[in-house]
Amino acid sequence: MSLIQVKDLYKIYQMGNTEVRALDGVSVSIEQNEYVSIMGPSGSGKSTLMNLLGCLDTPTSGEFFMDGTNVATMGDDELAHIRNKKIGFVFQTFNLLPKSTSLRNVELPLIYNGEIKAHERRDMAIRALTRVNLGDRVSHKPNELSGGQRQRVAVARALVNNPAIILADEPTGNLDSKTGEEIMTLFDELHKQGNTIILVTHEEHIAAHASRVVRLLDGKIAVDEATNRGKKVTQ
C-alpha cells in the first residue's frame, strides 16, 4: 500500500463565470521514503496539489488516501491531527511567528500535539534546531536571523514532530543559490534518514536532488519520471 495515493483529484475555483481548474484530474502514488519533486510553470497547480497533500485544503472531488485512509472525507479536527502528526510543511515564505523565538516556533507543533510535557518539548525543539545547525540561535527571533537561517528554523519545525512526510513548497524560492543548496543538503539528509520528501521547485538543479520528478501542466500531470539520480539508484 502506498503512503500517498491520489485518484482523480480535482480542485476547481469558480471565478464569476469562469471556472479555474487548478487541478484537473490528478492521479499519483507516492511510496514510503520517496524523494519527489514537483515542477511546472507558474499557475500549473503545484501549490494547490501540495496544499491538498498537506491536508491544508480540501479537493473539489477525487480521492486521497494517506496510509490507506481517505483524507478527503475527514473532518476538521482529524485533518488538524494529521497535519500535526504526519506532515511537516515547509513554506516558500517560511511562515514563522515573528514575535516568537526559534525555540518557540519549533515547539509549536509539539504544543498542539498535546501529549508532550514542557521540558520534553524543549529538548526536542533544541535537538531539531541543532540538527539544522542552529543550536546557537534558539532564542533569536525571526527578524534577527538571515533568510537561510529562517528557512532552517522552518525545517526544524517541520521535522520536530517526526512526521512521515515532509512537504516543501518552493523552500528555496526566497533564498540565494548558496543558501538554497544548504537547505537542499538538509532535505537530502532527512531523506537518507528515512523521511518521505515532496518538494516543489521550478529550478532543475534543485529538482535533481530528488529521485522522481512530477511535471504539472494546466492542472494535469504531464510527465512522471525518475531523475538521473533516481535512475542511478534503481540501476
Partner: peptide
C-alpha cells in the same frame, strides 16, 4: 496569518 500558521501546524478549531 498567525492563525493560518498555527492551523497548518496542527492547531484544532477548539485550540
Amino acid at each position: 496569518r498567525e492563525i493560518g500558521v498555527r492551523k497548518a501546524l496542527g492547531a484544532t478549531r477548539s485550540q
